[in-house]
Design a protein around this nucleic acid. Structure first.
Length: 524
RNA sequence: GCUCCCGUAGUCUAGUCCGGUCAAGGAUAUCGGGCCUUCGACCCGACAACGCGGGUUCGAAUCCCGCCGGGAGCACCA
C-alpha cells in the first residue's frame, strides 16, 4: 500500500490522469465531503409550520461576529421547522450608558439582509407599552407586586441582605393607585418602581423582588417622551413572548436568570410559556468587541463607520472579503454548546480560505517599496505573461511590460541582503549586501540569469507602471505600497490575493482610475 | 461571596439523554513529506484528549457521589 502511494505520488499530474483513465476512471467518490454541519438537536415540542422564533437585538451597535450565532441559529431552526422568525427591536429606553440610536434600526436590518436571513415581521418594543401596562395591571391585581420608593442603592443593599422593603405590605388598591400615579407623572425619575414579590430568601439575590417597571424621561429616538414608565427586559418579554405567539426562545446563556423570571411571571398568571434554548458566549480571541467603544468611535469619526475592521461587525467582515457563508459555517460549527468559548480568528480565516482561494486572482504587492534597478537586464525581455491563479487557468492571465526597474518590498529586500533572489516568474538578481532602511532608492542589483532557480522568490511591481495602493489593515492602520498595474483592472468589491501577503478586497467605493487603489485586508 | 452553567488533544467540536459498535470521529493549529515559479491552495503522513478520586456494572467518556478547575450572572441596562 505504502509503496503504491509512493509510486503514484511520484507521477506527474498528467501521467496520473492518463493512468487513471486506463484503469477505467475514478469513481465518483466525495473525497472531501462538503462539511454539512451536523443536525442540531430538535427544539422541544416543535411542530413543522408552527414554530415562531424571535430575535431581539438592542439597537446600540451594528451586529458583530458575536451576534452571528443568534442570527444563524434562529435562521437554522426557522428553516428546519418551516417556521416564522420575528425581528423585535428591544428598544426600551435603556440607560444613560446604554442608549438607543435610531440609525441602528436600519443598520441591523441591512446586516440581516446581507446574511440572507429574512424576517417575517419587524416590531419595536417601544410601540408595545400599552400591552405591557395592561399586563402590569393583571399582576398588580394578583397582589404580586408593590410600588417601591427606595433609592436604588438602598434597594440593592436590602435585596442583598434579604430585608423586605416597608412598602411590600401594600394592598392591591394601594399599589394600583400608586401605579397610576407613576403613569400620570406623579413621581420623579427614580422616585418609584414597580417590583415583583418573590421569595426574599431566594438563594439568588438577583432574583429577589425584581423591578418590573421604572421611570425614565430619556428621549427615545423613535417615540420621544411619549412614555415615562418603561418595563424592564424580563417583564416585557414575559408579555411579548406570549402576545406574539413565540413558541421557542433562543437566546444567549447570559439571559438564563431572565428565563427564570419570565417563568415565574407566567406561573403567577397560570400561563404555560415557551421553552428556552441557550448557547454559550462566543469570543474571537483577536476581537476585543466593545459595543460602547465602537459606538463612540464610529460617532466621533475615529472609526470609518460601522464597517471599520476594528468593530468586527458583520459589515466589516464583508468589507474584508470574509464571506457570509464562512461566518455562518464558523458560528454554526459550535452548535448549541453551553460552554463559553474563545476561538482564534484563524479558525474563521481557514473557513473563509477554502471558499475564497478558488475565486481570488493573484496579484503582486510591494509594501514600503524600494526602487531596484537591475543592471544588465536583458534588452529582449520586454514583457511577461502571468497566470492569474496557479491552479486555475480559468481565472485567466495578464501580460506585464517590464524594463529592468522594479519596486520590491523593503522587508523582502532587507531579509535577503547579499543573496541571490528571483523576481517571481521573471528573472534572478544579486542583491547588494547593504540596503537602505529608508528612502525609495534606487538600489542597483546585477542581473543573474532568467532560468528558474530554487532561490527565494519575491513579488515585484514594474516601476514604470506600478500603481499606489492603500491597504487598510484589521487594526485600522493604513499600509501603503505599490502593486503591479494589473490591479487597475479590478472591480470594486473584488476579492484578490496579494501573494505572500494575504487576501484583500477592493473597497466597494473605489472606482477604476482613482489613485491610490484602496483595499481592505482580509486575512493571511 | 452567592446563583447558574460548563469541563473530550494547543484551540473548537461529535459522542453523554437510551453504558458495549469509542483501544474516541471531524475541523483547525503544529511538525514531517509531496506538488508548485506565493510563506497560498491541494495531496500524503505524524503528533495529540475523555479534569481528579471513589462508586454501580461483566463492561463507564457515557449512570451516581465527592473534589478540583473554568466561565457567566448578581442594574431602576439589554
Amino acid at each position: 500500500m505504502a509503496e503504491t502511494i509512493a509510486a503514484v505520488t511520484g507521477l506527474s499530474p498528467e501521467v496520473r490522469a492518463s493512468e487513471l483513465a486506463n484503469l477505467g476512471g475514478a469513481e465518483a467518490i466525495a473525497v472531501r465531503p462538503t462539511k454539512v454541519a451536523g443536525e442540531l438537536p430538535a427544539l422541544p415540542g416543535a411542530e413543522p409550520g408552527k414554530v415562531v422564533l424571535r430575535m431581539a437585538p438592542f439597537p446600540s451597535g451594528a451586529l458583530h461576529i458575536g451576534n452571528a450565532r443568534m442570527i444563524f441559529l434562529n435562521d437554522y431552526y426557522r428553516r428546519k421547522y418551516d417556521g416564522k422568525l420575528l425581528l423585535v427591536f428591544d428598544d426600551t429606553v435603556g440607560s444613560e450608558e446604554k442608549r438607543v440610536d435610531a440609525e441602528l434600526f436600519g443598520v441591523i436590518r441591512a446586516d440581516l439582509d446581507r446574511c440572507g436571513v429574512p424576517v417575517d415581521a419587524v416590531l419595536y418594543k417601544s410601540d408595545r407599552l400599552p400591552t405591557h401596562y395592561a399586563w402590569a395591571e393583571r399582576v398588580i391585581a394578583l397582589g404580586a407586586t408593590y410600588v417601591c420608593f427606595c433609592p436604588s442603592t438602598i434597594l440593592q443593599a436590602n435585596r442583598r441582605a434579604g430585608i423586605a422593603c416597608p412598602e411590600r405590605v401594600q394592598t392591591v388598591p394601594e399599589t394600583l393607585a400608586l401605579w397610576h400615579k407613576m403613569l400620570d407623572g406623579g413621581f420623579e425619575v427614580g422616585g418609584a418602581v414597580l417590583r415583583l414579590k418573590t421569595d426574599l430568601a431566594d438563594p439568588d439575590p438577583a432574583f429577589r423582588d425584581r423591578v418590573l417597571f421604572r421611570i425614565s424621561d430619556l428621549d427615545h429616538p423613535r417615540v420621544g417622551r411619549k412614555w415615562r414608565v418603561w418595563p424592564l427586559l424580563e417583564f416585557s418579554w414575559a408579555v411579548d413572548d406570549i402576545e406574539l405567539g413565540v413558541t421557542h426562545v433562543l437566546r444567549g446563556k447570559d439571559l438564563v436568570m431572565e428565563d427564570r423570571m419570565q417563568r415565574h411571571i407566567w406561573q403567577l398568571l397560570g400561563i404555560q410559556g415557551p421553552p428556552f434554548v441557550h448557547w454559550g458566549l462566543l469570543r474571537v480571541r483577536e476581537a476585543k468587541i466593545s459595543k460602547s467603544k465602537s459606538y463612540a468611535e464610529v460617532k466621533s469619526g475615529e472609526y470609518d463607520g460601522w464597517a471599520d475592521p476594528r468593530t468586527w461587525s458583520l459589515a466589516s467582515m464583508v468589507r474584508r472579503g470574509i464571506l457570509t457563508e464562512s461566518v455562518k459555517a464558523f458560528t454554526m460549527s459550535f452548535g448549541l454548546s453551553l460552554a463559553d468559548i474563545e476561538v482564534p480568528a484563524e479558525t474563521l480565516y481557514a473557513e473563509n480560505r477554502t471558499r475564497v482561494d478558488g475565486i481570488a486572482k493573484r496579484r503582486m504587492f510591494a509594501e514600503d517599496p524600494v526602487r531596484v534597478v537591475v543592471d544588465g537586464f536583458p534588452a529582449d525581455l520586454r514583457s511577461v505573461t502571468l497566470s492569474n491563479h496557479p491552479d486555475l487557468p480559468a481565472l485567466g492571465e495578464r501580460t506585464v511590460s517590464v524594463d529592468g526597474t522594479f519596486f520590491l518590498a523593503r522587508a523582502d529586500l532587507l531579509a535577503h541582503a547579499g543573496e541571490t533572489v528571483r523576481l517571481k516568474d521573471l528573472a534572478n538578481l544579486e542583491l547588494p549586501a547593504l540596503l537602505p532602511s529608508t528612502g525609495e532608492g534606487p538600489v542597483h542589483a546585477p542581473f543573474a540569469g532568467r532560468e528558474n532557480r530554487r532561490v527565494p522568490r519575491l513579488q515585484w511591481a514594474e516601476a514604470a507602471s506600478a500603481i499606489p495602493v492603500d491597504l487598510l489593515d484589521v487594526d485600522g492602520r493604513h499600509r501603503s505600497g505599490v502593486a503591479e498595474s494589473a490591479l487597475r483592472d479590478s472591480a470594486p468589491g473584488e476579492i484578490l490575493q496579494f501573494e505572500r501577503v494575504g487576501f484583500v478586497r477592493i473597497e466597494p467605493d473605489w472606482t477604476s482610475g482613482m489613485s491610490p487603489v484602496r483595499v481592505c485586508f482580509g486575512h493571511p
